[in-house]
């Protein structure tokens, strides 16, 4: 592949991923509202388009045309940059995720990964972690006490779950012996029985819990819990800047779903008669649905409970898991 081809292919991939995942993130809000509504015996959005499908479009128009308010006492440049960080990091993290198996289109073999960093897992997790700077900066810059509380909770959350995420995927990485997501995927190519989740159930549960914390989904929905801190870091935001936080959050959810299915659930290998591309879509959809499902079912916890859970329960569990995995690998 020459340099020009490489540049063109990369640019096309970036555009496709950006467009596709912005649309998916928008559609995710529709799905979330529908699923939550059905679980609470409601109908959800019904009026815009058939069954409210075009609600996303209406919301988008609303967000784009709304006035962009910057509060007088805020630190303006940082206030304005913060949502961009949120959306950008979510998409940058997607750059190192192999989305589908290789396929051929118009006679060209396409690797559906923008940049095959050979430490893919760490890259994705690191970039996603730095995505938490968005709520932090937003809360601290908006000169609002609710915002400041949201920012403080962001710090708590990052310092709590970050360690658990790293340690929980350590054990599967030890089994595979590589940090590349493609290698991890290929390790599980033997079919249903080869999925790492069967060998590492504890790590899977820990990773999911940490993933919930990483994407601020409901059991750990501390940063912007309406009942406690109005809207947390997003209190002063309006219009598209607020929308960017949301796109970032949903893109992060999809990324975590991709990561969990790649590392633990067999990735994009063929699953019985189901081809690999469809299999990973099914897995990611289920995990995404699981995110919404827990939001309907579970209450959220206090910040001190999150710290207690992460440092006193999950961290020791993860360490024990690593030690046992190491012992088993040695023998």
């Amino acid at each position: 592949m020459t340099l020009t081809e490489f540049v063109i292919a990369t640019v096309v991939k970036i555009l496709v991923v950006l467009g596709l995942f912005s649309a998916l993130a928008g559609f995710g809000t529709y799905l979330e509202r529908k699923v939550l509504a059905f679980m609470q015996r409601r109908l959800g959005p019904m009026h815009v388009g058939p069954y409210g499908v075009l609600q996303v479009l209406a919301d988008g128009i609303k967000l784009f045309t709304k006035e962009d308010i910057v509060p007088q006492n805020s630190v303006k440049p940082i206030f304005m940059i913060a949502p961009v960080i949120g959306a950008a990091t979510a998409f940058i993290a997607l750059a190192a995720v192999p989305l589908f198996p290789e396929f051929e289109i118009f006679g060209i073999t396409v690797h559906p990964i923008i940049s095959d960093v050979n430490v893919g897992v760490l890259f994705v997790l690191g970039v996603m972690a730095s995505g938490l700077y968005a709520p932090l900066l937003a809360g601290m810059a908006s000169a609002n006490k609710w915002g400041l509380l949201g920012a403080a909770r962001t710090v708590i959350q990052l310092l709590s779950y970050e360690v658990v995420t790293g340690l929980s995927i350590m054990a599967p990485l030890m089994m595979v012996g590589s940090l590349s997501l493609i290698d991890i995927n290929n390790y599980q190519s033997g079919g249903f029985g080869d999925w790492i989740v069967w060998a590492q159930p504890v790590a899977f549960v820990l990773f999911l819990i940490a993933g919930f914390a990483e994407t601020n989904r409901t059991p750990f929905d501390l940063l912007e819990h309406e009942a406690e801190i109005i809207s947390g870091y997003a209190t002063e935001y309006s219009g598209m800047r607020w929308g960017m936080f949301f796109i970032g959050e949903y893109a992060n959810m999809i990324t975590i779903a991709f990561l969990a299915s790649l590392i633990f659930l067999g990735g994009f290998n063929d699953w019985g008669f189901i081809p690999g591309g469809l299999a990973i879509i099914l897995k990611v959809s289920f995990l995404f649905f699981f995110f919404l499902w827990t939001r309907a079912a579970w209450p959220h916890i206090r910040p001190d409970q999150l710290m207690w859970l992460c440092w006193k329960i999950l961290l020791p569990l993860a360490v024990i898991n690593i030690v046992i995995t190491g012992l088993v690998l040695m023998i």
Partner: peptide, 11 residues
């Protein structure tokens, strides 16, 4: 919540 979703008893 899953049962309620499957039952689809909308109010």
């Amino acid at each position: 919540v899953f049962r309620e979703m499957v039952k689809f008893n909308i109010h």
